[in-house]
Design a protein around this nucleic acid. Structure first.
Ligand SMILES: [Mn+2]
Ligand SMILES: [Mn+2]
Ligand SMILES: [Zn+2]
Ligand SMILES: [Zn+2]
Lengths: 152, 152
DNA sequence: GCTTATAATGAAAAAGATTTTCAATAGTAA
DNA sequence: TTACTATTGAAAATCTTTTTCATTATAAGC
């Protein structure tokens, strides 16, 4: 299933005239597999292990390309706002572990009533919303904050 | 009411041993009056009109001080994440005009049921949430996007 | 008021993050 | 293989934020 995602992303890249290069294989594979948001530096550090000559600038360029294809999306957190994770189709919200950074998507917010009430009270016309939940994932609850298991 | 806020902030600054200086008066006044989030550059540009010798570094320092006193809070937006607005007491959410940037607070989300459902499905323990609504304020609706009225 | 201690200031330098430039390289189609 | 050109990484440039430091100015004590 993750492998399919990797193949799909590579296909989407090729479909829009992009070439499949070493740096892109690595970066796509890491991003498509990641269960937490990675910023350019983290991504570069991880990818460099398998592709030592990788330049940070290629990481920036690949992130930009993948984001413009809506394959990844930016994740805002209190302390970092420049991290990316595989994007979900459709309208979804994020659930983030504030300990290890693990991210999950969920859907089905029940904001209709709230939005109508706020529109009435404020006079604004609401067109979009951000909803993110923060908490502890099951693993981090079990560890009780003693250790943190990070990616790789 | 806004004047009271200015006085309160100045009092809070003094109460914790800070000195009341020219740069601080100006910055507090602008931030306490602003109805949209301002980033360091914008704030510096506005404040410089009244205090030309103001250094950008004092803007950063004042923002840090006011934030640590919980008098202002950071506002995240799709394109800028380093802007600040007067903080609200208690748990509140933001409503932002995506045209002019005007910000309002609202309370009373109805997320209890959703949070419980997501906790069940995910195994996460949810501890906090971010909810922001984006839309068009009444003024920007009236202008139909022809003009944008910005601060000062 | 005058003196004094020291918090605050702005210029400059440093550090970090991101973007641009450019010559060399390598993927792709013919 | 060849030719075209997208992509690469190094280096430079640009922006943003933080640190350093000598100078200034607030506020407390007299
Ligand atoms: Mn953000
Ligand atoms: Mn809430
Ligand atoms: Zn976790
Ligand atoms: Zn507006």
């Amino acid at each position: 299933m993750i492998e399919e995602r990797v193949q799909e992303w590579l296909g989407r890249l090729q479909a829009c005239g992009c070439r499949l290069t070493g740096p892109r294989y690595i970066l796509v594979e890491i991003l498509a597999r990641a269960d937490r948001a990675l910023n350019p530096q983290e991504l570069h550090a991880i990818a460099s292990q398998r592709y030592p000559s990788l330049g940070l600038v290629s990481v920036y360029r690949t992130l930009e390309r993948l984001e413009s294809l809506h394959l990844i999306q930016r994740v805002h957190q209190p302390d970092k706002c420049q991290a990316y994770i595989a994007a979900f189709d459709g309208h979804q919200h994020l659930l983030l572990c504030s300990q290890c950074g693990r991210v999950r998507f969920f859907d089905g917010d029940e904001l209709g009533g709230l939005v109508r009430r706020v529109e009435q009270e404020s006079g604004y016309r609401v067109e979009d919303h951000w909803l993110q939940l923060f908490g502890l994932c099951d693993q981090c609850q079990a560890l009780q904050g003693n250790e943190v298991v990070l990616y790789e």
